[in-house]
Simulated assay, not measured.
Amino acid sequence: MSAFIQQLPALIGVMIGALGSYLAVVRSDQARFLRERTARWEERRLAVYADYARSLKKTVTLTYRVASHLGADPHPHPLSLAAAEPLLAEAAVARDPSGEALIMLGSTEAVEKARLWVAVVLEMERFVRAERREPQAWQTLLAQQRAAREGYYAAVRSDLELRPGHAARVPLPSVPPA
């Protein structure tokens, strides 16, 4: 028995070392799991944000083209409203699922900024559907759309903890009055 008592401190040391090693591995695995899960969700949110922006930009581009046909925008590829109608409907249908995904996964601020952006885009769509030929009013809408888009992208970058990005302001040629 005295041999057992002499070996007891070594045995306790081995047990403490094994327990410590086990706890270190468990904590390391938990930390890795949390990092991987966070990265997966960030990737999903980025994909949702990009899909929504892409679906909204389809409508924006179509309204540019119709406004160009009406003489209100300098877009180089004009498109008549009749030709754009099915494309606008398709863009609206494609926007709905990406909007739902945005509501589900997006931050409160990004969703709010997306709502502001889509409201301006819908106003642009109403403008061209009414076949308005007012370059100044169209330019005002364009400025509002760009500001709303910039706000959305800033909210997305903030949510994903990215650096501030480019405002994408490219000077466009002016449209001569009709």
Rank of each mutant, 00 (worst) to 15 (best):
A3H: 09
I12C: 11
G13P: 08
G13T: 11
V14K: 02
I16A: 15
I16S: 11
G17P: 09
G20P: 12
S21E: 11
L23D: 13
L23N: 13
A24W: 13
V25K: 05
V26N: 02
R27F: 03
D29R: 15
F33K: 10
T38Y: 11
R44W: 04
R45S: 04
L46T: 07
Y49G: 08
A50I: 09
D51Y: 00
Y52Q: 01
S55I: 00
K58M: 08
V60A: 04
T61I: 15
T63D: 02
R65W: 11
R65G: 12
V66D: 04
A67V: 05
A67C: 06
D73W: 14
P76G: 14
H77P: 01
L79R: 11
L79Q: 11
L81C: 05
A82R: 03
A84Q: 06
L88S: 03
E90C: 03
V93R: 10
A94W: 03
R95Y: 01
P97W: 04
A101Y: 02
S107Y: 07
E109Y: 03
E109V: 14
A114L: 01
L116M: 04
L116E: 02
W117Q: 09
V118S: 12
V118I: 12
A119E: 11
V121S: 13
L122Y: 09
E123T: 15
E123Q: 15
E125M: 11
E134H: 07
Q136I: 09
W138K: 06
Q139D: 09
R146W: 10
A148P: 06
R149N: 10
Y152Q: 04
Y152E: 08
A154Q: 06
A154N: 07
A155M: 04
V156P: 02
V156K: 00
R157A: 13
S158P: 00
S158D: 09
D159N: 08
L162C: 07
L162Y: 12
V170C: 07
V170K: 08
P171N: 10
P173L: 15
